[in-house]
Simulated scan of single mutants.
Amino acid sequence: MRARRSLSKVTDAAPTHDELVELVSAAGRVADHKELRPWRLIEIRGDDRIALGRAIAKSEGKKGVYSKPLRAPLLIAVVASVRSKKVDAWEQEATAAGVAHALSLLLDEAGWGVFWRTGDYTRAKAVAKAHGLEKGEHLLGWLYVGGKPERSRPLRGKTIDGARHLSRMPRGKKD
């Protein structure tokens, strides 16, 4: 995890469906209040990436194909599926985001290049329709997955100062 980095350029290699299923099974072990499993993932390969590109272009009022989905051989759409009114929606969305993050770490560990792409169009009707989203579902973005280029730059200057982001709970003033 300390060496993980987003790779915005990946090669045309990608994990197989079966390899992906195994990683998704592990990623699905994230914290999940009431075990609702309020998420699903959509595997997008080949011409499905073109269909997604058309939907994104349409959502922006343009014709043609938006090219970003073609930048990786595999896209994994991350869908939050709000399943219960007893658990806050934000908590269910956090579980879906947790699965995506865990999956990105697992993919990286398995030797794949990964980056997470979002954008305003994740909430567009044309994009939701292209993904077959149902009521209570919304798209959190896509994991772009491919091979790691041989000449990936080493991780530099990206260390996080944990002390800067960690504090104690403040104590209330005594009356």
Rank of each mutant, 00 (worst) to 15 (best):
R2A: 14
A14W: 11
P15Q: 06
D18M: 10
V24K: 09
A31T: 12
L36M: 01
L36A: 07
R37N: 12
W39G: 00
I42R: 14
I44A: 07
I44H: 07
D48K: 12
L52C: 06
G53A: 05
I56R: 03
S59V: 08
E60P: 01
G61P: 09
G64A: 04
G64N: 06
Y66E: 10
S67R: 13
R71A: 09
V78W: 02
A80D: 06
S81K: 14
S84P: 12
K85P: 12
V87H: 05
D88L: 13
D88F: 09
A89Y: 05
A89P: 13
A89G: 02
G98M: 06
H101P: 00
L103V: 00
L105F: 09
V114E: 03
D120P: 12
Y121G: 00
T122V: 15
T122R: 13
A124V: 08
A126R: 05
L133C: 01
G136T: 07
G136Q: 05
Y144H: 12
G146Q: 09
G147K: 01
P149S: 10
R153S: 12
R153F: 00
R153Q: 11
L155K: 14
G162D: 08
H165R: 11
L166P: 00
R168N: 11
P170N: 05
R171C: 00
G172N: 01
K173H: 05
K174W: 07
K174N: 10
